[in-house]
Design a protein around this nucleic acid. Structure first.
Lengths: 227, 227
DNA sequence: CTGTATCCGGATCGATACTG
DNA sequence: CAGTATCGATCCGGATACAG
């Protein structure tokens, strides 16, 4: 047993939550990701076997439950129980502290553009999107230049690693580290455009609306992600 | 490196705080324990070497600092930095969640009476004590019967494993598991006396005051620990 | 008494490969 | 899509020894 053996609420909580990856899995579940492979995408360095173990442990601890949708083709889904949902204040406290005391500029190992795109995909506020589908291309230049595409529609948001072929409505061009900092609100949207060389090109109707399409689900108030 | 490699405030916070024992060390520091051996007493299962490692890491992470009191004989003291002090809301969130969702009755391995006595010693509100020294003897019966003594004075509170020899002013008799639950406020002081066989004997002036001598440092409001 | 360093067996983690 | 299996590297727990 890897337990603390103390009759103390904090120690008891850490018995359940203290294992590596556990709280990051909860964070992903709070963001609405539920499938095994979705979780894996959000936790790039986790071994599959460890993810499977953690999910089993978390189920046993009563913070998540597994649901089998036999009817639909995408079968298994993990959901937070009430106990799991009530971890949100804890995750917010962690995030607040991390922002204040552990959030210097990104280091090279953290500049994984696919993870950034995945985060953005998951934070799209579909209710803010225009009626017709929008394709946004992101060109990131950093160590090397890479491109990704987001196909934004109310019914579904898809992240593509190759041009989906519908034509480009919005072209975002940015330094990768800069865009990470923008996404994390370390710099404002206006400063990103004015001072940090981020470009958002397309017809004005779309580029004006663009910064309002992304949200910040763990923030207390549902503010625009970028402003 | 045992880092998550994500540019995310939560992941960054967990890079620093996620190692085993780290948050429990912070908890002890928040309770005012500062010496190496005090921390060791509050973390009964931690290897000395691991405690030394963690303190070094925490120092490097900037959440604690080491102070050498060359003048006094008890040399080194560890203190929380501002970053460390601001972990208090996080620890409180952990405690709140743990109380709500992970705080069933104690299991036998958790019934360490010395740890309980140590917690009580550390939570004495010296300002509530009477002017003259009080000796309280605790007789715990559980798997076996054990006794401890608390010498309570404004200037100093001492935990003894043998009778200090000043005479006994207050005698507390209780089942060990029951007293743990009382200490953690899972049962009220009144119920402990009326329903759970806890006895507090001595002259009325002292036994009436007794439950107000202990505090709950992490609680938001400085309420009496037991009522 | 306080604090640190070292050693070792076992548990956990990380990376890769493989399966239904 | 949703996992298992395997294996070397790392970390943890416990004991012991050592220095101011």
């Amino acid at each position: 047993m890897s337990k603390y053996g103390q009759y103390c609420p904090v120690a008891r909580a850490l018995d359940i939550l203290g294992d590596r990856w556990t709280l990051l899995i909860v964070l992903n579940l709070l963001h609405g990701l539920g499938h095994f492979n979705e979780l894996e995408r959000g936790l790039p360095r986790i071994p599959k076997s460890l993810l499977a173990n953690r999910l089993r442990q978390m189920q046993q601890a009563g913070i998540i439950e597994k649901r089998h949708n036999d009817s639909g083709r995408s079968s298994t889904e993990y959901h937070l129980t009430q106990a799991g949902k009530e971890l949100k204040p804890l995750l917010m406290a962690l995030g607040t502290w991390g922002e204040a005391w552990a959030f210097s500029d990104p280091v090279p190992e953290e500049l994984n553009p696919i993870l950034l795109m995945w985060w953005m995909r998951n934070q799209v506020r579909v209710d803010q999107l225009p009626d017709s589908r929008v394709v946004a291309q992101y060109d990131f230049h950093g160590a090397e230049t890479v491109s990704f595409w987001l196909v934004l529609a109310r019914a579904d948001v898809t992240l593509c690693l190759t041009d989906p072929g519908y034509g480009i409505d919005i072209l975002v061009t940015a330094d990768l580290a800069t865009y990470f900092k923008l996404w994390r609100q370390r710099i404002s949207y206006q400063d990103a455009l004015d001072l940090y060389g981020v470009r958002v090109d397309g017809i004005p109707r779309l580029t004006r609306a663009f910064p309002h399409w992304f949200g910040w689900s763990l923030a207390a108030a549902p503010e625009p992600a970028m402003r």
